[in-house]
Design a protein around this nucleic acid. Structure first.
Lengths: 228, 228
DNA sequence: TGTAGTGAACGAACCAGTTCGTACATAACT
DNA sequence: AGTTATGTACGAACTGGTTCGTTCACTACA
Protein backbone atom coordinates (compact mmCIF):
# COMPACT_ATOMS: atom_id res chain seq x y z
CA UNK A 1 0.00 0.00 0.00
CA UNK A 2 1.13 3.47 -0.71
CA UNK A 3 2.31 5.71 2.04
CA UNK A 4 0.26 8.81 2.13
CA UNK A 5 2.41 11.78 2.71
CA UNK A 6 0.85 14.86 4.07
CA UNK A 7 1.25 18.23 2.56
CA UNK A 8 3.15 20.41 4.95
CA UNK A 9 2.55 24.04 5.38
CA UNK A 10 5.82 25.45 4.14
CA UNK A 11 5.82 28.73 5.87
CA UNK A 12 3.75 29.65 8.88
CA UNK A 13 5.30 32.94 9.74
CA UNK A 14 8.55 34.68 9.05
CA UNK A 15 7.84 38.12 10.32
CA UNK A 16 8.53 37.33 13.96
CA UNK A 17 11.86 35.79 14.57
CA UNK A 18 11.42 32.90 16.92
CA UNK A 19 13.43 33.49 20.02
CA UNK A 20 14.63 30.36 21.66
CA UNK A 21 14.12 30.40 25.36
CA UNK A 22 13.80 26.89 26.72
CA UNK A 23 13.74 27.97 30.33
CA UNK A 24 11.00 30.46 29.60
CA UNK A 25 9.09 27.83 27.68
CA UNK A 26 9.28 25.42 30.59
CA UNK A 27 8.22 28.06 33.04
CA UNK A 28 5.30 29.15 30.93
CA UNK A 29 4.09 25.59 30.49
CA UNK A 30 4.55 24.75 34.15
CA UNK A 31 2.73 27.83 35.27
CA UNK A 32 -0.32 27.10 33.17
CA UNK A 33 -0.22 23.41 34.00
CA UNK A 34 -0.10 24.14 37.71
CA UNK A 35 -3.28 26.14 37.45
CA UNK A 36 -5.03 23.50 35.41
CA UNK A 37 -4.06 20.63 37.67
CA UNK A 38 -4.99 22.57 40.78
CA UNK A 39 -8.33 23.36 39.21
CA UNK A 40 -9.22 20.00 37.71
CA UNK A 41 -7.02 17.36 39.25
CA UNK A 42 -4.78 14.95 37.45
CA UNK A 43 -7.38 13.05 35.48
CA UNK A 44 -9.59 16.09 35.11
CA UNK A 45 -6.94 18.30 33.55
CA UNK A 46 -6.60 18.15 29.77
CA UNK A 47 -3.26 18.25 28.06
CA UNK A 48 -4.78 19.90 25.02
CA UNK A 49 -6.35 22.52 27.21
CA UNK A 50 -3.06 23.21 28.95
CA UNK A 51 -1.30 23.46 25.60
CA UNK A 52 -3.92 25.83 24.27
CA UNK A 53 -3.38 28.18 27.19
CA UNK A 54 0.38 28.24 26.84
CA UNK A 55 2.15 30.09 24.09
CA UNK A 56 3.33 26.74 22.77
CA UNK A 57 2.05 23.58 21.25
CA UNK A 58 1.26 20.32 22.92
CA UNK A 59 4.43 18.95 21.41
CA UNK A 60 6.43 21.15 23.73
CA UNK A 61 4.82 19.67 26.79
CA UNK A 62 5.90 16.21 25.79
CA UNK A 63 9.27 17.50 24.72
CA UNK A 64 9.99 19.02 28.10
CA UNK A 65 7.96 16.93 30.53
CA UNK A 66 7.69 13.51 28.96
CA UNK A 67 4.10 12.70 29.78
CA UNK A 68 1.09 13.90 31.71
CA UNK A 69 2.24 12.42 34.98
CA UNK A 70 5.67 13.95 34.58
CA UNK A 71 4.08 17.33 34.12
CA UNK A 72 1.86 16.79 37.14
CA UNK A 73 4.82 15.82 39.26
CA UNK A 74 6.63 18.99 38.32
CA UNK A 75 3.53 21.03 39.05
CA UNK A 76 3.32 19.39 42.46
CA UNK A 77 6.96 20.13 43.21
CA UNK A 78 6.43 23.63 42.00
CA UNK A 79 3.54 24.15 44.39
CA UNK A 80 5.51 22.92 47.39
CA UNK A 81 8.56 24.96 46.46
CA UNK A 82 6.63 28.17 46.09
CA UNK A 83 4.90 27.78 49.41
CA UNK A 84 8.00 26.76 51.32
CA UNK A 85 9.89 29.68 49.84
CA UNK A 86 7.12 31.97 50.96
CA UNK A 87 7.36 30.58 54.45
CA UNK A 88 10.95 31.72 54.60
CA UNK A 89 9.57 35.24 54.78
CA UNK A 90 8.38 34.61 58.29
CA UNK A 91 10.63 36.32 60.78
CA UNK A 92 10.14 35.50 64.42
CA UNK A 93 13.70 35.82 65.63
CA UNK A 94 13.92 37.81 68.80
CA UNK A 95 10.22 37.60 69.58
CA UNK A 96 9.26 36.12 72.94
CA UNK A 97 7.67 32.66 72.65
CA UNK A 98 4.02 33.64 72.99
CA UNK A 99 4.32 36.44 70.47
CA UNK A 100 6.32 34.19 68.17
CA UNK A 101 3.74 31.45 68.28
CA UNK A 102 0.97 33.93 67.70
CA UNK A 103 2.79 35.30 64.72
CA UNK A 104 3.50 31.82 63.39
CA UNK A 105 -0.13 30.75 63.51
CA UNK A 106 -1.37 33.99 62.00
CA UNK A 107 1.21 33.78 59.28
CA UNK A 108 0.39 30.17 58.48
CA UNK A 109 -3.30 30.96 58.42
CA UNK A 110 -2.83 33.82 55.99
CA UNK A 111 -0.25 32.01 53.94
CA UNK A 112 -2.49 29.01 53.36
CA UNK A 113 -5.30 31.37 52.56
CA UNK A 114 -3.21 33.10 49.93
CA UNK A 115 -2.11 29.83 48.35
CA UNK A 116 -5.30 28.03 47.60
CA UNK A 117 -3.70 26.43 44.57
CA UNK A 118 -1.19 24.74 46.81
CA UNK A 119 -3.87 23.53 49.17
CA UNK A 120 -5.77 22.06 46.27
CA UNK A 121 -2.69 20.29 44.98
CA UNK A 122 -2.10 18.74 48.38
CA UNK A 123 -5.72 17.62 48.52
CA UNK A 124 -5.43 16.11 45.08
CA UNK A 125 -2.24 14.41 46.02
CA UNK A 126 -3.87 12.92 49.10
CA UNK A 127 -6.68 11.65 46.92
CA UNK A 128 -3.96 9.88 44.97
CA UNK A 129 -2.57 8.43 48.20
CA UNK A 130 0.58 10.47 47.83
CA UNK A 131 1.58 8.42 44.83
CA UNK A 132 3.45 11.28 43.18
CA UNK A 133 4.83 12.96 46.25
CA UNK A 134 6.40 9.61 46.95
CA UNK A 135 8.40 9.86 43.76
CA UNK A 136 9.79 13.24 44.56
CA UNK A 137 12.88 13.48 46.72
CA UNK A 138 12.85 17.19 46.04
CA UNK A 139 9.61 17.70 47.92
CA UNK A 140 10.66 15.69 50.94
CA UNK A 141 13.87 17.66 51.14
CA UNK A 142 11.97 20.92 50.96
CA UNK A 143 9.75 19.95 53.82
CA UNK A 144 12.11 18.70 56.45
CA UNK A 145 12.66 22.27 57.59
CA UNK A 146 8.96 22.97 57.86
CA UNK A 147 8.90 22.32 61.59
CA UNK A 148 12.04 24.26 62.41
CA UNK A 149 10.18 27.40 63.38
CA UNK A 150 7.64 25.84 65.66
CA UNK A 151 10.19 23.52 67.12
CA UNK A 152 12.42 26.40 68.16
CA UNK A 153 9.58 28.50 69.46
CA UNK A 154 8.35 25.66 71.58
CA UNK A 155 11.75 24.81 73.03
CA UNK A 156 12.30 28.42 73.89
CA UNK A 157 8.89 28.66 75.51
CA UNK A 158 9.59 25.65 77.68
CA UNK A 159 12.99 26.97 78.65
CA UNK A 160 11.50 30.29 79.64
CA UNK A 161 8.83 28.55 81.63
CA UNK A 162 5.84 29.89 79.71
CA UNK A 163 5.01 26.66 77.83
CA UNK A 164 4.36 23.35 79.46
CA UNK A 165 6.87 20.61 78.66
CA UNK A 166 6.14 17.20 77.19
CA UNK A 167 4.63 18.29 73.91
CA UNK A 168 5.84 17.26 70.50
CA UNK A 169 6.83 19.85 67.90
CA UNK A 170 5.60 17.80 64.97
CA UNK A 171 2.26 17.36 66.65
CA UNK A 172 2.06 21.08 67.28
CA UNK A 173 2.79 21.62 63.63
CA UNK A 174 0.09 19.10 62.84
CA UNK A 175 -2.41 21.10 64.87
CA UNK A 176 -1.52 24.39 63.28
CA UNK A 177 -1.68 22.81 59.85
CA UNK A 178 -5.02 21.21 60.54
CA UNK A 179 -6.66 24.48 61.51
CA UNK A 180 -5.14 26.51 58.71
CA UNK A 181 -5.47 23.91 56.01
CA UNK A 182 -9.08 23.05 56.74
CA UNK A 183 -10.00 26.68 56.50
CA UNK A 184 -9.12 26.64 52.83
CA UNK A 185 -9.70 23.04 51.86
CA UNK A 186 -13.22 22.70 53.24
CA UNK A 187 -14.45 26.23 53.05
CA UNK A 188 -16.77 25.58 50.12
CA UNK A 189 -18.73 22.66 51.50
CA UNK A 190 -18.70 24.05 55.02
CA UNK A 191 -20.11 27.35 53.84
CA UNK A 192 -22.78 25.64 51.79
CA UNK A 193 -23.89 23.36 54.55
CA UNK A 194 -24.15 26.00 57.22
CA UNK A 195 -25.25 28.83 54.97
CA UNK A 196 -22.54 31.17 56.13
CA UNK A 197 -19.66 32.56 54.12
CA UNK A 198 -16.53 31.34 55.83
CA UNK A 199 -14.45 33.26 53.35
CA UNK A 200 -15.76 36.65 54.42
CA UNK A 201 -13.01 38.86 55.88
CA UNK A 202 -14.63 39.34 59.28
CA UNK A 203 -15.30 35.62 59.57
CA UNK A 204 -11.74 34.80 58.58
CA UNK A 205 -10.45 37.11 61.25
CA UNK A 206 -12.51 35.32 63.85
CA UNK A 207 -11.33 31.93 62.70
CA UNK A 208 -7.76 33.10 62.71
CA UNK A 209 -8.09 34.51 66.19
CA UNK A 210 -9.67 31.27 67.37
CA UNK A 211 -6.83 29.27 65.89
CA UNK A 212 -4.22 31.39 67.60
CA UNK A 213 -6.04 31.13 70.85
CA UNK A 214 -6.37 27.38 70.60
CA UNK A 215 -2.67 26.99 70.15
CA UNK A 216 -1.75 29.41 72.90
CA UNK A 217 -4.09 27.80 75.35
CA UNK A 218 -2.88 24.37 74.38
CA UNK A 219 0.76 25.07 75.11
CA UNK A 220 0.14 27.43 78.00
CA UNK A 221 1.82 26.34 81.17
CA UNK A 222 -0.34 27.69 83.96
CA UNK A 223 -2.99 25.42 85.37
CA UNK A 224 -4.40 22.21 84.05
CA UNK A 225 -7.43 22.10 81.74
CA UNK A 226 -10.79 21.17 83.15
CA UNK A 227 -10.83 17.58 84.32
CA UNK A 228 -13.12 15.23 82.48
CA UNK B 1 -51.71 1.08 8.95
CA UNK B 2 -50.46 -2.17 10.20
CA UNK B 3 -49.44 -2.57 13.76
CA UNK B 4 -46.05 -4.07 14.05
CA UNK B 5 -46.11 -6.63 16.75
CA UNK B 6 -43.03 -7.90 18.47
CA UNK B 7 -42.18 -11.53 18.27
CA UNK B 8 -42.46 -13.08 21.67
CA UNK B 9 -40.54 -16.12 22.67
CA UNK B 10 -43.28 -18.29 24.16
CA UNK B 11 -41.34 -20.21 26.77
CA UNK B 12 -37.58 -20.00 26.93
CA UNK B 13 -36.32 -20.90 30.31
CA UNK B 14 -37.73 -21.94 33.59
CA UNK B 15 -34.64 -23.13 35.40
CA UNK B 16 -33.44 -19.78 36.71
CA UNK B 17 -36.19 -17.52 37.80
CA UNK B 18 -35.09 -13.95 37.44
CA UNK B 19 -35.95 -12.14 40.57
CA UNK B 20 -36.72 -8.56 39.93
CA UNK B 21 -35.33 -6.45 42.65
CA UNK B 22 -34.95 -2.87 41.54
CA UNK B 23 -34.06 -1.62 44.99
CA UNK B 24 -31.39 -4.23 45.36
CA UNK B 25 -30.03 -3.39 41.95
CA UNK B 26 -29.81 0.28 42.80
CA UNK B 27 -28.15 -0.45 46.09
CA UNK B 28 -25.59 -2.74 44.58
CA UNK B 29 -24.68 -0.23 41.89
CA UNK B 30 -24.54 2.64 44.35
CA UNK B 31 -22.38 0.73 46.74
CA UNK B 32 -19.78 -0.10 44.12
CA UNK B 33 -19.97 3.36 42.60
CA UNK B 34 -19.41 4.98 45.98
CA UNK B 35 -16.21 3.06 46.41
CA UNK B 36 -14.98 3.86 42.94
CA UNK B 37 -15.72 7.55 43.17
CA UNK B 38 -14.16 7.82 46.60
CA UNK B 39 -11.11 6.05 45.27
CA UNK B 40 -10.67 7.80 41.96
CA UNK B 41 -12.72 10.96 41.95
CA UNK B 42 -15.39 11.94 39.50
CA UNK B 43 -13.30 12.13 36.36
CA UNK B 44 -11.01 9.37 37.52
CA UNK B 45 -13.75 6.80 38.06
CA UNK B 46 -14.75 4.72 35.07
CA UNK B 47 -18.33 3.80 34.36
CA UNK B 48 -17.25 0.60 32.66
CA UNK B 49 -15.18 -0.29 35.66
CA UNK B 50 -18.08 0.34 38.00
CA UNK B 51 -20.38 -1.73 35.82
CA UNK B 52 -17.88 -4.57 35.72
CA UNK B 53 -17.78 -4.69 39.51
CA UNK B 54 -21.53 -4.74 39.91
CA UNK B 55 -23.66 -7.73 39.16
CA UNK B 56 -25.26 -5.72 36.35
CA UNK B 57 -24.46 -4.17 33.04
CA UNK B 58 -23.58 -0.60 32.26
CA UNK B 59 -27.01 -0.23 30.79
CA UNK B 60 -28.50 -0.51 34.25
CA UNK B 61 -26.42 2.34 35.58
CA UNK B 62 -27.86 4.62 32.97
CA UNK B 63 -31.27 3.12 33.45
CA UNK B 64 -31.29 3.95 37.15
CA UNK B 65 -29.02 6.95 37.46
CA UNK B 66 -29.24 8.79 34.17
CA UNK B 67 -25.62 9.71 33.70
CA UNK B 68 -22.25 9.71 35.38
CA UNK B 69 -22.88 12.89 37.27
CA UNK B 70 -26.24 11.61 38.47
CA UNK B 71 -24.54 8.56 39.84
CA UNK B 72 -21.86 10.65 41.48
CA UNK B 73 -24.47 12.85 43.10
CA UNK B 74 -26.21 9.84 44.56
CA UNK B 75 -22.93 8.49 45.81
CA UNK B 76 -22.24 11.82 47.47
CA UNK B 77 -25.63 11.89 49.13
CA UNK B 78 -25.11 8.34 50.20
CA UNK B 79 -21.83 9.19 51.87
CA UNK B 80 -23.32 12.08 53.82
CA UNK B 81 -26.36 10.06 54.83
CA UNK B 82 -24.33 7.16 56.14
CA UNK B 83 -22.10 9.38 58.20
CA UNK B 84 -24.87 11.50 59.62
CA UNK B 85 -26.81 8.40 60.52
CA UNK B 86 -23.75 7.09 62.30
CA UNK B 87 -23.50 10.31 64.26
CA UNK B 88 -26.94 9.72 65.65
CA UNK B 89 -25.34 6.93 67.67
CA UNK B 90 -23.62 9.47 69.84
CA UNK B 91 -25.32 9.73 73.19
CA UNK B 92 -24.27 12.55 75.45
CA UNK B 93 -27.54 13.22 77.18
CA UNK B 94 -27.10 13.55 80.85
CA UNK B 95 -23.35 13.98 80.77
CA UNK B 96 -21.91 17.11 82.34
CA UNK B 97 -20.61 19.60 79.76
CA UNK B 98 -16.91 18.81 79.99
CA UNK B 99 -17.47 15.07 79.75
CA UNK B 100 -19.94 15.61 76.95
CA UNK B 101 -17.54 17.72 74.93
CA UNK B 102 -14.78 15.22 75.51
CA UNK B 103 -17.01 12.46 74.31
CA UNK B 104 -18.11 14.48 71.30
CA UNK B 105 -14.58 15.20 70.13
CA UNK B 106 -13.45 11.64 70.70
CA UNK B 107 -16.44 10.32 68.87
CA UNK B 108 -15.98 12.68 65.94
CA UNK B 109 -12.32 11.80 65.74
CA UNK B 110 -13.04 8.09 65.65
CA UNK B 111 -16.04 8.45 63.40
CA UNK B 112 -14.09 10.35 60.75
CA UNK B 113 -11.32 7.84 61.07
CA UNK B 114 -13.73 5.00 60.42
CA UNK B 115 -15.28 6.71 57.40
CA UNK B 116 -12.35 7.51 55.19
CA UNK B 117 -14.55 7.07 52.14
CA UNK B 118 -16.74 9.90 53.29
CA UNK B 119 -13.76 12.14 53.96
CA UNK B 120 -12.48 11.47 50.48
CA UNK B 121 -15.84 12.28 48.95
CA UNK B 122 -15.91 15.59 50.78
CA UNK B 123 -12.40 16.37 49.58
CA UNK B 124 -13.36 15.51 46.05
CA UNK B 125 -16.44 17.64 46.32
CA UNK B 126 -14.39 20.57 47.55
CA UNK B 127 -12.07 20.13 44.60
CA UNK B 128 -15.20 20.54 42.49
CA UNK B 129 -16.10 23.70 44.38
CA UNK B 130 -19.14 22.02 45.86
CA UNK B 131 -20.76 21.92 42.47
CA UNK B 132 -22.72 18.77 43.21
CA UNK B 133 -23.43 19.33 46.86
CA UNK B 134 -25.08 22.52 45.67
CA UNK B 135 -27.57 20.51 43.68
CA UNK B 136 -28.59 18.37 46.58
CA UNK B 137 -31.23 19.64 48.93
CA UNK B 138 -31.12 16.28 50.60
CA UNK B 139 -27.58 16.81 51.83
CA UNK B 140 -28.20 20.27 53.16
CA UNK B 141 -31.20 19.00 55.04
CA UNK B 142 -29.17 16.19 56.52
CA UNK B 143 -26.56 18.55 57.79
CA UNK B 144 -28.51 21.25 59.51
CA UNK B 145 -28.65 19.12 62.63
CA UNK B 146 -24.93 18.52 62.63
CA UNK B 147 -24.29 21.27 65.12
CA UNK B 148 -27.12 20.39 67.46
CA UNK B 149 -24.95 18.38 69.77
CA UNK B 150 -22.15 20.85 70.21
CA UNK B 151 -24.57 23.71 70.38
CA UNK B 152 -26.41 22.17 73.29
CA UNK B 153 -23.27 21.10 75.09
CA UNK B 154 -21.86 24.59 74.85
CA UNK B 155 -25.01 26.33 76.05
CA UNK B 156 -25.20 23.99 78.98
CA UNK B 157 -21.57 24.58 79.80
CA UNK B 158 -22.04 28.31 79.80
CA UNK B 159 -25.15 28.03 81.94
CA UNK B 160 -23.35 25.90 84.46
CA UNK B 161 -20.48 28.33 84.51
CA UNK B 162 -17.78 25.94 83.29
CA UNK B 163 -17.45 27.33 79.75
CA UNK B 164 -16.73 30.92 78.93
CA UNK B 165 -19.50 32.77 77.10
CA UNK B 166 -19.23 34.56 73.76
CA UNK B 167 -18.22 31.64 71.60
CA UNK B 168 -20.05 30.49 68.51
CA UNK B 169 -21.32 26.93 68.21
CA UNK B 170 -20.71 26.74 64.49
CA UNK B 171 -17.17 27.90 64.96
CA UNK B 172 -16.67 25.29 67.64
CA UNK B 173 -17.98 22.71 65.24
CA UNK B 174 -15.59 24.11 62.66
CA UNK B 175 -12.68 23.59 65.01
CA UNK B 176 -13.63 20.05 65.90
CA UNK B 177 -14.14 19.24 62.24
CA UNK B 178 -10.82 20.75 61.24
CA UNK B 179 -8.87 18.64 63.69
CA UNK B 180 -10.73 15.42 63.00
CA UNK B 181 -11.00 15.85 59.25
CA UNK B 182 -7.39 16.77 58.69
CA UNK B 183 -6.32 13.68 60.52
CA UNK B 184 -7.79 11.55 57.78
CA UNK B 185 -7.60 13.81 54.75
CA UNK B 186 -3.93 14.71 55.01
CA UNK B 187 -2.55 11.71 56.77
CA UNK B 188 -0.81 10.34 53.70
CA UNK B 189 1.19 13.38 52.70
CA UNK B 190 1.83 14.37 56.29
CA UNK B 191 3.21 10.95 57.12
CA UNK B 192 5.39 10.93 54.03
CA UNK B 193 6.83 14.35 54.63
CA UNK B 194 7.69 13.84 58.25
CA UNK B 195 8.55 10.18 58.00
CA UNK B 196 6.23 9.17 60.78
CA UNK B 197 3.14 6.99 60.54
CA UNK B 198 0.27 9.18 61.66
CA UNK B 199 -2.09 6.27 61.23
CA UNK B 200 -0.41 4.15 63.88
CA UNK B 201 -2.73 3.41 66.81
CA UNK B 202 -0.54 4.99 69.48
CA UNK B 203 -0.05 8.09 67.37
CA UNK B 204 -3.77 8.33 66.72
CA UNK B 205 -4.45 8.17 70.42
CA UNK B 206 -2.08 11.04 71.03
CA UNK B 207 -3.64 13.13 68.29
CA UNK B 208 -7.08 12.41 69.62
CA UNK B 209 -6.10 13.36 73.14
CA UNK B 210 -4.52 16.55 71.84
CA UNK B 211 -7.67 17.43 69.97
CA UNK B 212 -9.84 16.91 73.00
CA UNK B 213 -7.52 18.95 75.10
CA UNK B 214 -7.43 21.77 72.60
CA UNK B 215 -11.18 22.05 72.63
CA UNK B 216 -11.48 21.81 76.39
CA UNK B 217 -8.85 24.45 76.95
CA UNK B 218 -10.40 26.65 74.33
CA UNK B 219 -13.82 26.74 75.95
CA UNK B 220 -12.59 26.58 79.52
CA UNK B 221 -13.77 29.43 81.63
CA UNK B 222 -11.09 29.97 84.20
CA UNK B 223 -8.48 32.57 83.48
CA UNK B 224 -7.51 34.30 80.27
CA UNK B 225 -4.98 32.83 77.86
CA UNK B 226 -1.48 34.21 77.79
CA UNK B 227 -1.41 37.74 76.48
CA UNK B 228 0.44 38.31 73.28
C1' DT C 1 -57.22 -22.41 32.94
C1' DG C 2 -54.73 -21.01 29.33
C1' DT C 3 -53.00 -17.26 26.69
C1' DA C 4 -52.18 -12.78 24.77
C1' DG C 5 -50.76 -8.27 26.21
C1' DT C 6 -47.91 -5.08 28.82
C1' DG C 7 -44.35 -2.70 31.00
C1' DA C 8 -40.32 -3.05 33.85
C1' DA C 9 -35.72 -5.06 33.97
C1' DC C 10 -31.84 -6.18 31.61
C1' DG C 11 -27.67 -7.30 28.12
C1' DA C 12 -24.62 -6.94 23.90
C1' DA C 13 -23.01 -4.31 20.61
C1' DC C 14 -22.26 -0.15 18.94
C1' DC C 15 -21.34 4.95 18.22
C1' DA C 16 -19.42 9.37 18.40
C1' DG C 17 -16.51 12.30 20.67
C1' DT C 18 -12.37 12.77 23.35
C1' DT C 19 -7.63 12.26 24.85
C1' DC C 20 -2.94 11.01 25.29
C1' DG C 21 0.81 10.51 22.81
C1' DT C 22 3.72 10.33 18.32
C1' DA C 23 5.59 10.84 13.48
C1' DC C 24 7.04 13.99 10.52
C1' DA C 25 8.66 18.26 9.07
C1' DT C 26 11.20 22.31 9.80
C1' DA C 27 13.31 26.43 11.79
C1' DA C 28 16.94 28.44 14.66
C1' DC C 29 21.15 28.41 16.84
C1' DT C 30 26.22 26.94 17.46
C1' DA D 1 26.54 20.35 9.79
C1' DG D 2 24.67 18.97 13.70
C1' DT D 3 22.01 19.76 17.56
C1' DT D 4 18.19 21.90 19.78
C1' DA D 5 13.69 23.64 19.64
C1' DT D 6 9.11 23.85 17.77
C1' DG D 7 4.55 23.24 15.14
C1' DT D 8 1.02 20.34 12.64
C1' DA D 9 -1.39 16.52 11.69
C1' DC D 10 -2.95 12.36 13.06
C1' DG D 11 -3.87 7.66 15.09
C1' DA D 12 -5.03 4.20 18.54
C1' DA D 13 -7.33 3.54 22.53
C1' DC D 14 -10.61 4.88 25.58
C1' DT D 15 -15.05 6.45 27.36
C1' DG D 16 -19.55 8.11 28.17
C1' DG D 17 -23.76 7.27 26.44
C1' DT D 18 -27.34 5.01 23.16
C1' DT D 19 -29.86 1.60 20.33
C1' DC D 20 -32.05 -2.44 19.74
C1' DG D 21 -33.82 -6.32 21.18
C1' DT D 22 -34.79 -9.92 24.90
C1' DT D 23 -36.48 -11.80 29.37
C1' DC D 24 -39.60 -11.95 32.87
C1' DA D 25 -43.61 -11.33 36.09
C1' DC D 26 -48.06 -10.24 36.11
C1' DT D 27 -52.86 -9.09 34.58
C1' DA D 28 -57.11 -9.32 31.97
C1' DC D 29 -59.93 -11.93 29.68
C1' DA D 30 -61.68 -15.83 26.79
Amino acid sequence: MALIKKERKPKPDASTTRIQDPEGTRRNILEIASKEFALNGLSGARIDEIAARTRFSKRMIYYYFGDKEGLYLRALENAYRQVREGEAQLDIEGLPPVAALTRLVEFTFDHHHRHEEFIRMVMIENIHHGQYLEQSDAIRELNVTAIDHISRIYSRGVEEGVFRPGLDAIELHWQVSALCFFNVSNRTTFSMIFGRDFGAPAQLERLKRNSVEMLLRFVAKDEAPAER
